[in-house]
Design a protein around this nucleic acid. Structure first.
Length: 427
RNA sequence: GGAGAAGUACCCAAGAGGUCGAAGGGGCUCCCCUGCUAAGGGAGUAGGCUUGUAAAAGGGCGCGAGGGUUCAAAUCCCUCCUUCUCCGCCA
């Protein structure tokens, strides 16, 4: 949620910022509503003051034997007007909210406007692996190594799903354990949240109203509930409607959950295998920060995401996204993109973002400033750390050998009983 | 799923229609006393949103949430949420 005061006082700035995200917003109406709201409050409060005074005088007048009925009538008249103002005020505030809530976050000043074409690669890590044999793609490799069973997954669930089998499941679990252990060592608190969330949680995260179509809704729940599309949705809501202490910030969390997404009609032929699915595993990092330290938190999250991939020995790059390619709720996003040799492209394995106070405003998540004692909105940040469904394909493809085997990265071996290589199974 | 009980400030808790922003503790801050500690004594400290203003003063709203009754609601009524206890059902 954007700050209405900023919109009123600095309209052009906000307008131009949103323009970078491709939103040309006319604020004239909200500003009018905003002024109308103030006007109503002032007038209404005057009436309420009068009413309160009259009401409070009743016991006194009664004692003195004065005319109470007269006061009752006066207050009744006042109440009529107050009710009218209250109703009008409620409507105006609802209108303001309805206007603001679908608007995206403002991008940070240093972001380039526009979409993907303006993303900038900041850094490349490692080198593209060169194969002096015919390299296989991950779908073929996973099948020949017995890691993934797509056909039976389709049978029991449907397309867009897969079954980790045997060493495939162990490899997946090893990745998750590797991520989890790393975060614990870095002092992040491990959270296992519920996967079924209420609608307000989606709203606070900024995913609703925009992405209501993209999550799975449960039937028969009242009030309505949905299955989380990312652990971020749960994590950002932990402190909803709370005032945190500055000395406890930044609060660093991480969670493991599967992510459930409708992704309706988004399949492309290139996205075979597990590049895009209805359910994938992800470890998510999250920080509640102050406005002062959120930049530092962001750097830390980006660095952590990079290190995770780096220690797997994979070739990848880090990109700074242009304003229009940042998530709806985010002021700034860097993507960690891993090289998928068969596709000849880089695919996102981590998206590190700073929402600034956008989500905090929606969820009323605040902290008390130690020095001034003032209440301020938190900054919220998240970064995948990491999503396995892109890492595993990259890993098997980048680490494949001529004999069809795949070498397990060093850091994962302790989670896999010391296995160094996975060999093709004989059918 | 059924039946009960409860939700008041940082915490515990009083309050049962009018002067209640809300007693009393605890905590916290400062001071005194004791060689130090434990203990004791004194004083202070009550949130948040909003309006208003140069800043203030002042005002409005807040006792789980939302409605209602009333001239007047923490207090009465309704709905919902949450927590606890008991019973049932089920992995």
């Amino acid at each position: 949620m954007l700050d209405i005061n900023l919109i009123v006082n600095n309209t052009k700035y906000v307008h131009d910022a949103l323009l970078k995200k491709g939103f040309d917003v006319d604020f004239k109406n909200v500003i009018e509503l905003y002024n109308k709201r103030k006007d109503l409050i002032v007038k209404n409060d005057e009436l309420k003051t009068e009413k309160n005074k009259l009401s409070a005088s009743v016991p006194v007048v009664k004692k003195q034997g004065g005319n109470i009925q007269e006061i009752f009538e006066k207050v009744k008249d006042l109440n009529k007007k107050i009710d009218e103002y209250d109703a009008e005020l409620k409507k105006v505030e609802e209108d303001i909210r309805n206007f603001l809530s679908p608007l995206p976050n403002m991008p940070d000043d240093d972001l380039l406007p526009g979409e993907k074409e303006n993303n900038k690669v900041i850094k490349e890590f490692g080198k593209k692996p060169e194969f002096n044999f015919k390299a296989k793609d991950h779908v073929e490799l996973c099948e020949s190594l017995g890691l993934i069973d797509y056909e039976r997954a389709a049978k029991i669930s449907g397309r867009g799903t897969w079954l980790y089998t045997g060493l495939g499941a162990r490899l997946e679990w090893a990745l998750l354990n590797y991520f989890i252990d790393t975060h614990i060592n870095d002092g992040y608190k491990f959270i296992l949240p519920p996967h079924i969330l209420n609608e307000e949680s989606g709203y606070t995260a900024g995913q609703f109203p925009k992405f209501k179509q993209d999550v799975f809704w449960l039937e028969g729940t009242e009030p309505k509930k949905f299955i989380l599309p990312t652990a971020e949705t749960a994590l950002v809501n932990i402190h909803r409607n709370e005032i945190l202490k500055e000395e406890n910030l930044p609060e660093k969390l991480f969670a493991y959950t599967p992510c459930y997404r409708c992704e309706a009609g988004s399949y492309r032929t290139e996205e075979r295998g597990m590049i895009r699915g209805y359910q994938f595993n992800k470890v998510e990092m999250f920080q509640y920060a102050t406005e002062k330290n959120s930049k530092q938190s962001f750097e830390e999250l980006v660095d952590k995401a990079c290190k995770l991939v780096e220690r797997l020995g994979l070739h990848f790059r880090l990109s700074k996204l242009a304003a229009g390619d940042c998530s709806h709720s985010m002021a700034r996003t860097y993507d960690v993109e891993v090289w998928i040799p068969s596709m000849g492209i880089y695919k996102e394995v981590s998206s590190a973002s700073n929402a600034n106070d956008y989500q905090a405003r929606r969820g009323n998540i605040r902290y008390k400033d130690k020095e001034t004692g003032k209440i301020k909105y938190c900054h919220t940040l998240n970064a995948s750390g990491l999503a396995t469904s892109r890492v595993l394909p990259a890993l098997v493809e980048q680490c494949q050998n001529e004999d069809g085997s795949v070498t397990i990265p060093e850091v994962l071996r302790k989670y896999m009983g010391g296995i160094e290589k996975i060999y093709p199974i004989n059918k």
